[in-house]
């Protein structure tokens, strides 16, 4: 996993709540056996008319050349629904390193963290302030400090992340390395009498 420390970027605003993982990556694109190439089907049915790649829907924000950046900003309860990790893979493959929302679904949050995509949960008010910014406005996310700032206005909020996950992300460590390092504890646990 790639390490992540500070992200400084413009953002893409997705002004919708309850964005479920079936929208992020529809089930029919889950037939792959590798993690690659999911970005082209990110938000597939919102992006293209009649599922036809050659006809982008003009009103969908990813198709709006006005917006770009490594940060996706979305309404509350982002990532609800299915546990498909393909949702995190498709966001990452598309080029997002951070998703900002005022609320995340549990499994999505874990999946994102496990793939080096940082979910940043902010207050509803702060989310609104971000949505009020224009396309040139940048956000700075500092993982070490656990802060997110709107650079144009200097407004800033702190966000939560547990220490363990923070260390993993900062250093690009992954959970399996950790679990393998405590193999003895696991074996001892298995040997306990019933």
């Amino acid at each position: 996993m790639e390490s992540l420390q500070t992200i400084h970027s413009t953002f893409i605003p997705l002004r919708l709540e309850n964005v479920d993982t079936d929208q992020i990556i529809p089930a029919r694109f889950l037939k792959a056996t590798t993690k690659d190439g999911f970005g082209k089907n990110l938000f597939r049915d919102w992006r293209y008319e009649n599922n036809d790649e050659t006809t982008p829907k003009a009103d969908f924000v990813l198709n709006n050349p006005y917006y770009s950046g490594e940060i996706l900003v979305a309404g509350k309860n982002f990532g609800c629904g299915s546990s498909r990790e393909h949702a995190a893979w498709s966001l990452l493959d598309y080029g997002f390193r951070v998703v900002v929302s005022s609320f995340f679904a549990d499994i999505f949050k874990n999946n994102a963290l496990n793939n080096g995509v940082l979910p940043v949960q902010v207050s509803d008010e702060f989310l609104q302030k971000i949505f009020e910014q224009d396309n040139t406005s940048t956000l700075t996310i500092n993982l070490e400090q656990q802060t997110i700032a709107i650079d144009a206005t200097g407004e800033q909020e702190t966000f939560e992340i547990n220490n363990y996950k923070k260390t993993c992300l900062l250093n690009g460590y992954d959970d399996i390395d950790f679990l393998l390092s405590i193999k003895e504890d696991i074996t001892a646990f298995e040997k306990q009498p019933a």
Binding site: S83, R84, E85, H86, A88, D106, I107, N110, N111, N114, N115, N162, Y164, D174, D175, I176, F178, L179, L180, K183, I186, E190
Partner: peptide, 22 residues
């Protein structure tokens, strides 16, 4: 509970997952 594919890999590797107490 449901897990993502990274966690499926964790269970394969160690029969454990990392979970915060809900």
């Amino acid at each position: 509970f449901g897990i993502g594919t990274s966690e499926v890999e964790m269970v394969f590797a160690s029969q454990c997952v990392l979970q915060s107490r809900p």
